[in-house]
Amino acid sequence: MDDGIVKGKGRTQVRLEALDTGNGICLCLTGGEAPHVGGMVLAAPRPSLTGQGTGCDVWTATVPGHKDVYLAQKAAEKLCKALEVNVSATVGIHIDGAREQELKTIEENAMEALDEYIAAVKSRREADGGSHHTG
């Protein structure tokens, strides 16, 4: 299933698009003035090293000179742990002359979109009888 969620407005607007394969999620977060591909992360669930809950192993790749991979990692880990599925996350959000508060707002918008997406997937799972399949 394809999902699109938009949070924020103007320079700090973020768009979340996700392809739920039924056996993992392909996430794309873009926004700002110049959406692009800046960083990619793959997260795979595993038992937490503390013995409580789910952790995840993470691999990253970044386009040289881009910092999008930091938000990609945060997003991929959040989805991976919450939904216990493999997640690939691609992020590309750019605004010229970004101020610290704008960067914070972008991250807040992205996390709000992720929370909405996670709630929707969990709701679908419940409707499907609690299946871990997310499709």
Rank of each mutant, 00 (worst) to 15 (best):
A43L: 11
L83I: 07
H132P: 02
A76W: 13
Y70R: 15
T50E: 08
H36M: 00
T21V: 01
P64W: 05
I106Y: 10
V85A: 09
C26P: 02
L29G: 03
E33D: 11
R46N: 10
A98L: 07
E17W: 06
E116F: 01
A76C: 08
V87G: 11
L42S: 11
K67L: 07
K67C: 07
T62Y: 08
T21W: 06
L27T: 08
D2T: 06
G65A: 12
K67H: 10
L49K: 12
G130W: 04
A113P: 12
E100A: 13
L19A: 11
A34Y: 10
G135A: 14
Q52M: 12
E116L: 15
K74S: 12
I106C: 00
K104C: 06
A44C: 14
T134D: 12
D128N: 12
G65F: 07
C80S: 13
A44Y: 08
A76R: 11
T105K: 14
T30L: 01
T21A: 05
A61S: 14
G65C: 11
L27C: 01
A44D: 05
I5R: 08
E108H: 13
E108I: 03
A61M: 15
G32E: 05
G97E: 15
D68F: 05
T60P: 01
A113T: 04
G53D: 03
L71H: 09
G55N: 07
E112A: 15
G8N: 01
N23I: 10
N86W: 00
G97H: 15
M1C: 05
N109K: 04
A120D: 13
V69M: 11
P64S: 08
V91R: 01
A120T: 05
A75V: 06
T54Q: 09
T50G: 01
Q73M: 15
C28Q: 12
L29D: 05
D115K: 15
E107P: 02
R46T: 12
S123A: 13
N23R: 14
I106E: 08
Y117M: 10
E100H: 07
Q73F: 10
G53K: 06
G32T: 06
C56F: 03
R99V: 07
P64E: 04
S123G: 10
V87K: 10
E108T: 04
D128P: 00
G8K: 04
D20H: 08
I5D: 08
V69W: 13
T30E: 13
A61V: 15
Q13E: 14
L16P: 10
L29H: 07
W59I: 15
A110F: 09
A76Y: 11
I106L: 04
A119T: 08
A98T: 02
G39R: 00
E84K: 15
G130C: 10
T105D: 15
A61W: 09
S48Y: 09
